[in-house]
Design a binder for these strands. Structure first.
Lengths: 151, 151
DNA sequence: TATTAGTTTATAATTATTATAAATACAAAC
DNA sequence: GTTTGTATTTATAATAATTATAAACTAATA
């Protein structure tokens, strides 16, 4: 964890931003809850536990900053709330999500499934792809089993 | 256009909803501006031209209803505003989007590029895919040419 | 005609997010 | 070591999108 914090610190410094105590606290929360997709509000509540004096606006500003530097990805699953999500170290792309319409769970797919599709888009549409967001909506494994049992 | 309106009317009736004058006006706007991605506010302004007495809340409610019936797709490109977009007749899936980070234009891809990827998700993750949303971020053809000329 | 359920309008309320101004921290220059 | 300037944060206010609510309306039905 310290290693990744250190890398993020360097990324900030490279753009002449500082890793202030508040920013460090926020990054620590994101690292701890890496598998989750936290809303700004959730980050705020978690950060308050280790840095109680922090303000909500700072959380928003920091998440925006991290998002610009491609350290976190900001995504909107359609419920009006933005979620923030650490990008895996070295990952070129946003990872994919599987959103279950039954239980609301969000699973991640780290593999890049879109290499071929991107080539098609580049060649056929002349669109130079920089990044992508892919979300599948459907029924997760757990909910499928429940449905089967129920019938 | 009348044909498609009629089909939508039937879809509403099938779920025992009525095609009220307000709903009809909204659907007409969506049909006229099919290639666009309109926000609720934009729909509201356009509908007011043909049905001035309509309320914004009705627009929201109707778009939500159409969205539930999969007649329109609601999408959020990350700017906090939801866009609404008619689903092509007979289309099983949400279509894909190419969002240009230079000029903000949004292009549509109607082809389904994800059949193979969906199979992988179904088989490897056991996730039963119902729908998907795929957006590419990058530089559109026009902006690429501008960049080339500028150098 | 009276009734009922569904729908709309107008408005208020809510929620997420952003802007602002004053306070603070901290590094560089003197 | 103080001063100065810039970046950052805090607290609060403002904004913008969306949703909830209550009253009015409509159309079908008993």
């Amino acid at each position: 964890m310290e290693h990744r914090l250190d890398r993020i610190k360097k990324q900030l410094h490279a753009q002449s931003y500082k890793l202030t105590p508040q920013r460090e606290a926020i990054v620590r929360v994101l690292l701890e809850r890496e598998e989750d997709h936290l809303s700004a509000e959730e980050v705020y509540l978690l950060v308050k536990e280790i840095a109680p004096e922090i303000g909500l606006a700072t959380v928003y500003r920091t998440l925006d900053l991290l998002s610009e530097l491609k350290i976190v990805d900001k995504i909107n699953f359609g419920d009006g709330v933005s979620s923030y999500d650490l990008r895996k170290e070295g990952a070129k792309h946003f990872h994919h999500h599987l959103v279950c319409t039954e239980c609301g769970s969000v699973e991640e797919i780290v593999d890049d499934l879109l290499e071929d599709v991107e080539k098609i888009v580049q060649n056929d549409w002349g669109f130079q792809v920089k990044d992508h967001r892919l979300t599948f909506h459907g029924v997760c494994r757990v909910c499928q089993e429940i449905t089967v049992k129920a019938t």
